[in-house]
Amino acid sequence: MRHDAPAAPKAGRQAPRAALAASRAPGSWGGAGRGDAVGPHGLILVVSTLVTADLALIFLWVPTETLAMGVVQRIFYFHVPLAWVGFLAFGVVFVASILFLWRGGRRWDALAHASAEVGVVFTTLMLFSGSTWAKPVWGVWWTWDPRLTTSLILWLLYVAYLMVRAYAPTPAQAARYAAVLGTISFIDVPIVYFSVVWWRNIHPEIIVGPTAQPGSLEPEMLVTLLFSLLTFTLLFAYLLWERVRLREAEDAVRSLRGLERSE
């Protein structure tokens, strides 16, 4: 995705260029061209190699769990990294939101926005993969276990976050409202978790939660899980990078349009 792709209006060719440069200079990540040449291309090679290796480990190398779950257990190597990345992404939103409110600067907003979008995608996949695993193993698609309930609330919090961004009247307002929500939501998550744990302790649960503790894993399973965690974390970093650059391109196009109108 290159920034200078949109055709500049014929009148005043220089002005849009200047606007583009201005939109990049103060608050954007990386200089013009530099990231395009090295960053994503290098990273995409590493990430696609890792993903291929990870798929090979999960589907070919790691032994099938034979005690209880069978082949379904392989979902675990996707599900745990997805959950981890989702939480990591919302942590990034939290930090970037605070930095935006504290220091200002469009780039913190771009980072929070990008991270929230990637986080919602990963959390959605986490919920689906968890449900797909739960049906054969627990016999139900869903149970109101603290972890599941908190994940669902987490997902709703950040869907609302993205909705406010979409429905705010101006980009500046979207950035401020989103930063407020990004801060509040992350503080809320541990409180939700504790309230749901206590709620569930009062109503005894029939279905036991996921029993797969790291200690009970075979060495191959542990290796696959750790490798998968690394792969997904780098995949997240790559997607985040691409999304931030896309956001900056969107900002540049918006400022060009504004310039066109004012002429």
Partner: peptide
């Protein structure tokens, strides 16, 4: 917009 924002954050209060 308000219920969509408020209800998830207010889950601990409701519980």
């Amino acid at each position: 917009m308000l219920p969509i924002l408020l209800l998830p954050v207010a889950v601990p209060v409701v519980i």
